[in-house]
Simulated assay, not measured.
Amino acid sequence: MKNAEIRALSLEDLKTQIKAEQTNGQSMRFAHAISPLENPIRLKQARKNVARLLTELKRRENEQATNTAN
């Protein structure tokens, strides 16, 4: 998921996507522990997607807090 796609998401969609990516990453880790994944780089990509989503969520929360304080 690219940053432009992440910025286009609504707040609720962003939270839903975070949960989905975390669940997906966890299931991939479990599957990889049992038998190696065909493409283990997907684990790294899943972690990065979660980090991007969380960064955008934090940015929006900080922006909202700044706007509320002013």
Rank of each mutant, 00 (worst) to 15 (best):
T68G: 10
R47A: 14
L57Q: 03
A20L: 04
N70M: 07
T23W: 05
I41Y: 08
S10Q: 07
P36R: 01
R42K: 12
T16C: 14
S35K: 11
P36S: 03
A31D: 06
R42V: 03
T55H: 14
L57S: 03
T23F: 05
S10Y: 05
K44D: 14
Q22A: 14
E61D: 04
E63D: 12
N62W: 04
R59W: 06
L43A: 00
Q17Y: 05
G25C: 05
T23V: 06
A51I: 05
R59F: 05
P36G: 02
T23S: 07
N70E: 07
I41F: 10
L9Y: 01
E56H: 03
L54Q: 04
K15M: 10
I18E: 00
L57M: 05
K15P: 13
T68V: 09
K48G: 15
N70D: 06
A65M: 00
N62M: 04
Q26R: 14
A46T: 02
L9P: 04
T68N: 09
N70R: 05
Q17A: 06
S35G: 11
L57V: 02
K19D: 13
K44Y: 13
A4G: 08
P36A: 02
A69F: 10
T66C: 08
T55E: 15
E63S: 07
A46D: 04
L11S: 15
L11H: 15
R47P: 14
A8L: 04
R42Q: 09
E12D: 13
Q22V: 12
E5T: 04
F30R: 14
K15T: 08
N24R: 06
H32E: 06
K15Y: 09
L43C: 00
Q17N: 10
R60V: 00
M28H: 05
R7W: 12
E21R: 06
V50A: 05
S35W: 10
V50Y: 02
A20P: 03
T23A: 08
R59S: 07
R47G: 15
D13K: 07
E38H: 09
A69R: 10
L14V: 02
K19Y: 11
E12I: 07
R42L: 09
S27E: 13
Q64T: 09
T16D: 15
P36C: 02
E5C: 09
G25K: 02
T55I: 09
A69I: 11
A4E: 11
V50G: 02
